[in-house]
């Protein structure tokens, strides 16, 4: 029991840092996703191409490779970020890239008739978006965004490879100092499950309710 009293607080502290990273990267990533997703739908071809490049690049390489790049290669270009900063920035840019596609898909999924009806009623474009299209798109985006947030939370574990003392790192440290990998990594897994399950299940429950009144194409 001695071991537990020493290890558990360390793991909980690690879990707290994982959560903080996820919240920060998530907020930043969502902002990028909404901006890039909406701009990609309307703006000029050059901007659209740039956003496409950003999305494909981040989706085509993995977050793990990008974290290594940001932490080891970026300093050689004169940009020195701490491990925590590099990791959080990479995760945010990843969420932004995947989120951009979700926003675009959700906007596309709102039936055309909704847009046409707004036009026929003479509503201004911004009201069409703010009052009609975005609220409907949001209901379709909740489930994929929930899944994305679960991926983000799991993605914070990658930061352990560049020495950020989040949950996974805390678990590895504890195992290397006192052993008991089954108990400690088991506890780490359960802690991730406890953090991720409410997000995943909440998003699913919301989606089931939202489906009842979604308009079909």
């Amino acid at each position: 029991m001695d071991a537990a009293t020493y290890v558990l607080p360390a793991l909980l502290k690690g879990a707290w840092i994982s959560l903080l990273v996820a919240v920060q990267a998530g907020a930043l990533g969502l902002a990028i996703a909404v901006a890039a997703g909406a701009l990609r739908e309307m703006a000029n071809p050059i901007l659209r191409f740039a956003i496409g490049l950003y999305v494909e690049f981040f989706r085509g390489t993995s977050a793990f490779i990008q974290i290594y790049w940001a932490y080891f290669a970026l300093p050689m270009l004169g940009v020195r970020l701490s491990a925590l900063e590099a990791g959080t920035a990479v995760l945010a840019l990843n969420i932004g890239a995947y989120g951009t596609e979700i926003v675009r898909g959700a906007l596309k999924a709102v039936p055309r008739g909704q847009r046409e009806a707004c036009h026929a009623l003479g509503l201004p474009v911004w009201i069409t978006y703010v009052k009609v299209l975005i609220p409907q798109a949001l209901t379709r985006a909740i489930l994929p965004f929930g899944n994305l947030m679960v991926d983000l939370l799991k993605g914070t574990a990658l930061l352990s490879a560049i020495t950020v003392t989040e949950l996974t790192f805390a678990g590895r440290q504890a195992v290397s100092s006192i052993g008991h990998p089954f108990l400690i990594f088991g506890a780490v897994l359960v802690l991730y499950l406890i953090m991720a399950a409410p997000i995943a299940w909440g998003a699913r429950a919301f989606d089931r309710r939202a489906r009842r009144w979604q308009t079909e194409a």
């Binding site: 679960v150 799991k154 490879a161 996974t168 990998p181 499950l193």
Partner: peptide, 22 residues
Amino acid sequence: TEFIRLTPLIVQLFFAYYVLPE
């Protein structure tokens, strides 16, 4: 399925790598 998907692959790797020999 739920357990595998709601926990990070990297931790699952550590778990297997350290626990299987035990």
